[in-house]
Computed example of a mutant assay.
Amino acid sequence: MVSQITLIVEPRGKPIRKLPKDVTVTLTSSGEELYSAIAEASGASVHRLRITKGSDRSVVPNAKSTTIKDTGLKESSIIHVKDLGPQIAWRTVFIIEYLGPLLIPALFLFPLRNLIYFNFDKPLPEPSDLQLLVCLLLTLHFLKREYETIFVHRFSNATMPARNIFKNSAHYWALAGFNIAYWVFRPDAAAASANPNPILVYAGIALFVFSELANFNAHLVLRDLRRPGTTERGIPSGFGFNWVTCPNYMFEILAWLGIYLVSQLSWSVLFFTLVGGLQMWSWAWKKEIRYRKDFGDKYKKKRTVLIAGLF
């Protein structure tokens, strides 16, 4: 006979209408089933709820793989339920994030050119071939990101707080969109030259193409570690994963360094790359720590998490 227990339910933060005072589950019930039961009873979206244990405030995972017994909850244990507020799907977040830098370069280079560079002598010169090339590389990069968002990535969390969409989008819209487009496409930019350094151009194109393909391959490896609709994790292996914890981040940075070379060393591209690189370095270390914790001796520890031989 399956053992049933009754958990005491208390709100945390703002009150949740119709939140039940208790909920009955079995020790073999999953965390996902607990979330669903409370969501159904309260009428709240399951994605808005976060359940924590009253004893130590640790989060009860909303996962099929975690049972009530695994969490340590017992008869009459107290759980706190918090309303996280309006949510937005992670896939939607990424689509919006990348849409800005996907469209902004072409807008700056063509229909908005005379308005943006109003302080230059008229008529403005036509965009150089190199500026057109940089625009093409930026467009290809973010088209790839949109494709991966829709068809490749599998997200461990279904949603995030809707208010975060502005913060998350600012990095890409401001730094990768407005910042790079304005400075690289100026009539007096280094990329506007009719005689750019060919070594920088060809080296940058080669680095960009190689890195984008390698980055895509890394994303496919990570995608295949997780079955659709699950949050399970596995140990990634394959090209780049023996060098660093997150080769997808490494190849992302290398692709941007390729654009930096093609742009004739524009500081705006380098600035975006450095800011993004620091964030990815932080994420990579957190992932390395999580791999070591989750997989123990099965995981080969990495000292270099981001750039082979450096970080």
Rank of each mutant, 00 (worst) to 15 (best):
L136E: 11
L124C: 01
D83S: 06
N62Y: 06
L107S: 14
G85W: 03
Q131I: 06
P127F: 00
Y147T: 06
D22P: 09
T52A: 05
S128A: 02
R17H: 14
A44N: 08
V23C: 10
K64N: 14
E126T: 08
I38D: 08
W90C: 04
E148W: 06
F108I: 15
I79P: 02
L73P: 01
G72V: 00
T28L: 14
S36P: 11
K82F: 00
N114C: 07
P86K: 04
G72E: 01
D56P: 00
I104H: 15
I104Y: 14
K74V: 15
F108D: 15
G72D: 04
R145F: 09
K14A: 06
Y117E: 03
P86A: 03
V81N: 02
T52Y: 00
F151R: 12
G72A: 08
N114S: 12
T149P: 02
G43C: 03
I78H: 05
G31P: 13
N119E: 10
K18Y: 11
V60A: 01
V93C: 06
L27T: 05
L132W: 12
E75V: 11
N119V: 07
G72I: 00
P20K: 10
I78M: 09
E126S: 14
R17S: 14
E33N: 12
H141I: 09
S65T: 15
P105H: 05
K74E: 09
E97C: 13
V60H: 00
L132C: 09
S42D: 11
L107D: 15
T71H: 08
I38P: 06
S45F: 07
I88G: 04
K18T: 10
S36Y: 13
V152P: 06
E33T: 14
F118Q: 13
N119K: 08
C135A: 11
E97V: 12
I88L: 07
S128N: 03
K69G: 15
E146V: 12
I96G: 09
R91E: 02
V81K: 07
T66P: 11
G100E: 13
F108W: 14
C135N: 13
T28G: 13
P86L: 03
A106S: 13
L103F: 14
P20S: 08
T67G: 10
A63G: 08
R50Q: 05
F151L: 08
T52I: 03
C135M: 12
G72S: 10
K53V: 00
H47Q: 12
F120Y: 13
I38Q: 08
Q87M: 05
V81W: 06
V23Q: 10
F142E: 11
G31H: 07
F142R: 14
L124S: 03
I78L: 11
C135K: 06
S128H: 03
R113D: 05
E40F: 08
I96F: 05
L130M: 10
K74T: 15
V152A: 02
Y35A: 10
F120N: 02
P125Y: 02
P123L: 01
